[in-house]
Write a protein that binds this DNA or RNA. Structure first.
Lengths: 228, 228
DNA sequence: GTACTGGAAGTTGTTGGACAGACTCAAGCG
DNA sequence: CGCTTGAGTCTGTCCAACAACTTCCAGTAC
């Protein structure tokens, strides 16, 4: 895929160092000069690798002090996947239950004629693929995505893309799901939070869901008082 | 927050160029030397910015040819937001309703003592921040994230991070929420899809949600027959 | 003994120049 | 017209140096 430039090798080399020496979060990496010497490349290239590592949130450079581990890359490469493989396919369904069921409801309410046509087309494609091929994963996914898209709510699509692993789409979409801050009704907000936490502590499932729904509803009202 | 190093300025400068000159996907950027001259900095620093832009999937460098636009940053910064600004903050709430309410329910059921302690800690932090500062957005977000994390389901966390714009975390997580294909019970599967589409066509909201839930449930049973 | 000061050493940030390898494009040749 | 060739351009890599900053310790003042 990617051409293995020297900077790429340096990148994985540094990741390797973090894993092999089991450097913890906050630990200091060898200096740029040292790494350059170690890999037999120039410091310039080591810097390029470090810039990318920093951009990926794995390391952090402090001028005059050194580069430090910010989050361990092994967390995603080793610990995370194997352990959670099963539970995440299962877990993915868990999320899709609530997400896509609601998306289907909204799609039914809001779909435009054009979106309906696209959904129908995706269904036809799926039918054709199923009859001819053995697998029709792509068509299946496409139909689901069309339905989600018909909610006319980009946030739904965003969540769906994230769940189905379409990271590229996620990045291309609106990243700043604006975090506009509500006015200072801090007291009420804090109380709502406390109610949620209390329900979770008490393992009161319905109570927790209800409190969260209430909190989000109030937050939305605070954010845009006009809208209903 | 971030110290404005020269490379950071170069990064936004290049983004600015792409937007201002409305460079399209596939168009070529000015050469590194030209950019260096333009910004009044050395080529090395321009390269650092380009490395990050490439790592972010915005540009792509081809040796001997130049750097090219791979995906327009304006798509997320300009085109997307202004049009959908209101609807996406509102829309974000719509999704969070269903997602976080269910997350709170699961968190209540599954939280470990450690996770409960973390949730409590986040709440304390939020309280402290609210009393001292004007804004406590970060603490608010952190509390919500802790609750979602207590579902013990990485897919929930993934969707949450995507919705709150924490793309870095999304990418760091396990990207391949494996798309293991169910065995070929194609006939049943197709019929379920048709029911969903039919409900959406008829604008039968509850029917659509129900059909989708049914479909996902059956799909999960097909995927792992043992698990209930 | 303790607290402050100063400086030396080490590290990242930035610069300018240099060369190799790869691509582009057009002039020139068959 | 089609192909080759070569000049010009561009990215990839290296080097040597200086600036700005942090860390740490020795030495001094109290």
């Amino acid at each position: 895929m990617t051409v293995q430039r020297l900077a790429d090798k340096a990148y994985s080399g540094i990741v390797e160092i973090i894993k092999a020496d089991s450097l913890d979060v906050g630990d200091r990496l060898p200096s740029e000069s040292r790494l350059a010497e170690l890999f037999g490349i120039s410091r310039t290239i080591v810097r390029e690798a470090l810039v990318r590592l920093a951009s990926d949130g794995i390391t952090e450079a402090r001028r005059g002090a050194g580069s430090f581990v910010k989050s361990r890359p092994s967390d995603r490469l080793m610990t995370f996947l194997p352990m959670a493989e099963l539970s995440s396919t299962l877990g993915s369904y868990e999320v899709r239950f609530v997400l896509e069921a609601e998306a289907a409801r909204l799609a039914a309410a809001r779909r435009s004629p054009e979106e309906m046509a696209e959904i129908q087309f995706a269904l036809d494609q799926l039918r054709a693929a199923m009859l001819s091929n053995e697998t029709a994963d792509a068509e299946d996914m496409e139909l689901h995505r069309r339905i989600v898209a018909a909610t006319a709510n980009p946030a739904f699509t965003l969540a769906f893309d994230a769940l189905t692993g379409d990271i590229e789409r996620v990045m291309r979409a609106g990243v700043d799901i604006s975090r506009s801050r509500p006015p200072h009704v801090l007291g009420a907000m804090l109380r709502e939070h406390e109610m949620i936490v209390e329900a979770i502590r008490a393992q009161d499932c319905d109570g927790a869901a209800l409190a969260m729904r209430w909190h989000l509803w109030e937050g939305r009202k605070r954010l845009m008082p006009g809208e209903l």
